[in-house]
Simulated scan of single mutants.
Amino acid sequence: MSVDFGQIRRNEHLPARIAAQIAREITEGRILPGEKLPTEHFLANSFGVSRSVVREAIAQLRNEGLVETRQGVGAFATELQTRQSIRIEQDDLHDRSTFRDLFQLRIPLEIEAAGLAAIHHADADLAKLDEALAAMTGTDKWTDQGIVADLIFHRVVAAATGNEYFALFVGFIAERISLAINAARAAAVLEEIVEVTIAEHVAIRDAIASRDPHKAREAMKRHLLGAANRLDLTLES
């Protein structure tokens, strides 16, 4: 199969835009149900991005039910009868009220996910949180790679609940909220907002590690309300 994906515009959030383009290939039938997607290496070269960005796009498609991944084999378009119907186009979220509504839904889901993660997480989950934090605090923290690591952090928290539906819905929403991260970075002094965001994530990680669900919920709540404030969103909580 040869798919000419072209170059993605650099001023867009790359994983979301790549996911949207691959999704069109699937929904319009150019990638057939059950067909294997091109390799990460091929996609990264085709889009002109890193493999970590491609992995983030594939994770988004998996959350949407358009793709399934098989360990050591690759990613495949799901069969029609198994596809889930959750899909929100990125362009829809340029409408402020729609974006606010989605962000509002994020609040209770992620707060409860943090609490459950504090109770149910395994050592492997903490290791993954630490890995994401390392990426968020490293030399790439000013770039799109820092945003990718931020999204991975939230997906790991959701997975650590032990409830696959949290992983599904929180992962789906977090991908869409990537717009928020970009918008917040654009609206503030980058150094300040990145450091504040990192500190909030460290607090969430430490609260989860302490196995205190109350502290974990409060840490996640402070982060989400802080993120909303940085976007000038007024949310009920």
Results as ranks from 00 to 15, higher is better:
residue 9 R to Y: 04
residue 11 N to F: 07
residue 12 E to W: 02
residue 13 H to M: 03
residue 14 L to P: 00
residue 14 L to K: 00
residue 15 P to G: 09
residue 15 P to D: 03
residue 18 I to H: 10
residue 21 Q to Y: 03
residue 22 I to C: 01
residue 23 A to H: 07
residue 25 E to V: 06
residue 28 E to L: 15
residue 29 G to A: 11
residue 33 P to G: 10
residue 36 K to Q: 13
residue 36 K to D: 00
residue 42 F to V: 00
residue 53 V to Q: 00
residue 53 V to D: 00
residue 57 A to T: 02
residue 59 A to P: 03
residue 62 R to Q: 14
residue 64 E to S: 15
residue 70 R to G: 08
residue 73 V to D: 03
residue 75 A to V: 04
residue 77 A to T: 12
residue 78 T to G: 01
residue 83 R to M: 05
residue 85 S to F: 10
residue 87 R to S: 11
residue 87 R to C: 11
residue 88 I to P: 05
residue 90 Q to K: 14
residue 94 H to W: 13
residue 95 D to R: 15
residue 98 T to F: 06
residue 98 T to S: 12
residue 102 L to G: 10
residue 103 F to N: 09
residue 109 L to P: 05
residue 109 L to W: 13
residue 109 L to T: 11
residue 111 I to D: 02
residue 113 A to V: 14
residue 114 A to G: 11
residue 115 G to A: 11
residue 117 A to S: 13
residue 120 H to S: 11
residue 120 H to R: 13
residue 120 H to P: 04
residue 121 H to K: 01
residue 123 D to A: 15
residue 126 L to C: 01
residue 127 A to P: 01
residue 128 K to M: 09
residue 133 L to D: 02
residue 135 A to E: 01
residue 147 I to H: 00
residue 150 D to M: 10
residue 155 R to C: 03
residue 158 A to Y: 01
residue 159 A to T: 15
residue 160 A to K: 07
residue 164 E to F: 15
residue 173 I to H: 06
residue 173 I to V: 15
residue 175 E to L: 09
residue 178 S to A: 15
residue 180 A to R: 12
residue 186 A to N: 09
residue 191 E to F: 12
residue 199 A to P: 03
residue 199 A to T: 11
residue 199 A to C: 05
residue 200 E to V: 14
residue 200 E to S: 12
residue 202 V to G: 04
residue 204 I to L: 02
residue 205 R to L: 05
residue 210 S to Q: 05
residue 220 M to N: 10
residue 220 M to E: 03
residue 225 L to N: 04
residue 227 A to S: 14
residue 236 E to L: 15
